[in-house]
Simulated assay, not measured.
Amino acid sequence: MATTTRTAPLAQLGVLLAGRGAVASARVRDTLAAQGLTMRCVYTLTHLADGPVNQQALIDLLGVDPSALVAVLNELESLGMASRQRDAADRRRHIVTITPRGTAALQSVESALDGADDDLFAALSSDERDQLERLLTKVADAGSCGDKY
């Protein structure tokens, strides 16, 4: 019987990332839940932090289905973190704006996520963390990771 040499599954990059990703994902979800938000809310608030955006442009920026964005905007509005108003130039469109409460929540989330990162990546030096960020961004930019929303 012939023996096959196999790479140990835990040495494969995809498996390593999936395992660590599950841990990181749970940590991030818990951190956001403590702030009363979801990742979708944070992505949306992050885009709104740059200034008012019409709803269709926000859909395009986030690369999401319109109904998914409407659900998130409804949630953010109910929390007082975003507002939608009719565009005076085109009454069919809505302009979405982050509120001061949304800005404060986003700053709080960013601080909490920095703490979660410090815990998750404590074994890495600052240079190694920067390198990991660059590499993961490169992989994400190549489009092999799917939608973030």
Rank of each mutant, 00 (worst) to 15 (best):
M1P: 09
T3I: 10
T3Y: 09
T3S: 13
T4N: 14
T7N: 14
T7K: 15
A8T: 02
P9M: 09
P9R: 09
P9I: 08
L10G: 06
L10Q: 13
G14E: 08
V15W: 09
V15M: 11
V15N: 14
L16V: 12
L17E: 04
L17V: 05
L17H: 04
A18G: 12
A18S: 14
G19K: 11
R20C: 00
A22Q: 07
V23E: 14
V23F: 11
A24Y: 03
A24L: 01
A26K: 15
R27L: 09
R27G: 01
R29I: 12
D30Y: 10
T31K: 01
A33H: 06
A34N: 05
A34Y: 02
A34M: 04
Q35K: 02
Q35A: 06
L37W: 07
T38Q: 06
C41S: 15
V42F: 07
V42M: 02
L45V: 02
L45Q: 03
L48G: 01
L48K: 01
L48S: 00
A49K: 08
D50C: 08
D50Y: 14
P52D: 01
V53A: 12
Q55L: 03
Q56C: 00
A57S: 14
A57P: 02
I59H: 10
I59S: 12
D60M: 15
G63T: 04
A68N: 15
A71E: 15
N74H: 07
N74V: 08
E75R: 11
E75M: 10
L76I: 01
E77H: 08
E77K: 11
E77I: 09
S78M: 07
L79W: 08
G80M: 08
A82W: 03
S83H: 03
S83T: 00
R84W: 06
Q85Y: 02
Q85C: 04
R86V: 09
D87N: 07
D87M: 03
A88E: 15
A88I: 14
D90G: 13
R91I: 10
R92E: 07
R92W: 07
R92V: 03
R93T: 04
R93P: 07
H94N: 15
H94R: 15
I95L: 12
V96I: 11
V96R: 08
T97G: 06
T99C: 02
T99N: 00
P100K: 11
G102C: 00
T103C: 00
T103Y: 00
Q107R: 12
Q107T: 13
E110N: 15
E110R: 13
E110Y: 05
S111E: 13
A112R: 02
L113I: 14
L113R: 07
A116D: 08
A116P: 03
A116Q: 04
D118K: 11
D118Y: 06
D119Y: 07
L120E: 11
L124P: 07
L124T: 10
S125K: 10
S125F: 09
S125E: 09
D127H: 01
R129Q: 12
D130C: 11
L132Q: 14
L132Y: 13
L132A: 15
L135A: 10
K138F: 13
K138P: 02
K138A: 15
V139P: 08
V139F: 11
A140C: 10
D141G: 09
A142P: 05
C145E: 12
C145V: 13
